[in-house]
């Protein structure tokens, strides 16, 4: 059997190679064939999930909720010290100094990143801004989102903080965060599907051991831009899903 591994399409482009390195490392350690499929966007990945074409997935918290509740996946690990935070940014010359300065009619640029868009809209509630009194323009990537703001085609954009920090310095200098979330409790997770449930414990032991001194997994972690993995038990996952539930309309 070949297992199917995939990664939430919001991963940082500079770590694409890292996921191939991880896939190779995992195959060698498990002695099982694994095929890595990186989907271009969230809808393509969701179709694959719906068609039961995914066995292992590094998922964003929004998709994790669906994978656990509807597809019987179990989360085994979360990236160490890497919470999903959101930056609401405006062009540097925007008159808005805080979220409360943003007005109805706001032209909003977003990606298809579901948890970022959810948290971003929640942060705008303080200014009484909703989907109904803003105009939303969806773009493909965070780089395109930055360009959309710089070209004056939108007033404000939602970024995954990691993606905002990864923008090139000249681009970042032309943007200004008006709010950054500090939620800490929402993060990506590595999940195992029901077809390979018998590998769950072995997989968890393997990934948790990657950061140990002398482990050959350390170079792989570096390629992924991670310092290690934290154990994720069922209750940790349920808690995060409950939290996401409180945020959804």
């Amino acid at each position: 059997m070949t297992l199917e591994l995939t990664v939430s399409p919001d991963f940082s482009p500079e770590h694409i190679a890292g996921w191939y390195v991880f896939n190779t490392w995992l195959q060698r350690k498990l002695g099982v064939r694994i095929h890595l499929e990186l989907y271009e966007d969230f809808s393509a990945q969701r179709q694959a999930i719906a068609a039961d074409k995914v066995d292992l997935i590094y998922a964003n918290p929004y998709d994790a909720a669906m994978l656990v509740r509807e597809k019987g996946f179990v989360a085994i690990a979360a990236p160490q010290g890497k919470a999903d935070e959101v930056v609401i940014a405006v062009p540097v010359d925007s008159p808005a100094q805080s979220v409360e300065d943003l007005q109805p009619g706001l032209r909003l640029a977003v990606t298809r990143d579901p948890d970022v868009n959810l948290i971003g809209m929640i942060l705008l509630e303080a200014a009484d801004l909703t989907r109904d009194n803003t105009q939303t323009q969806q773009v493909s990537t965070y780089v395109v989102l930055a360009r959309t703001l710089l070209q004056g085609k939108a007033d404000c954009g939602f970024f995954l903080k990691e993606a905002f920090d990864d923008l090139s310095a000249p681009i970042r200098r032309q943007l200004r965060p008006v709010m950054t979330s500090q939620i800490s409790l929402v993060h990506h997770v590595l999940l195992v599907g029901p077809r390979c449930a018998e590998l769950r414990e072995t997989l968890q032991t393997l990934v948790l051991g990657m950061a140990e001194p002398g482990s050959d997994g350390r170079a792989t972690l570096q390629a992924l831009g991670l310092s290690g993995w934290d154990r994720q038990d069922q209750e940790d996952t349920e808690f995060m899903i409950d939290l996401m539930d409180t945020l959804m309309v």
Binding site: L123, A126, D128, E238, L247
Partner: peptide, 22 residues
């Protein structure tokens, strides 16, 4: 926002999340 925490069909507690109001 408050929701019941349901585990194996049983309410084991409640989670409450507060955010900034306008």
């Amino acid at each position: 926002t408050a929701i019941p925490n349901v585990r194996d069909g049983r309410v084991v507690g409640y989670t409450s999340v507060r955010r900034k109001p306008s």
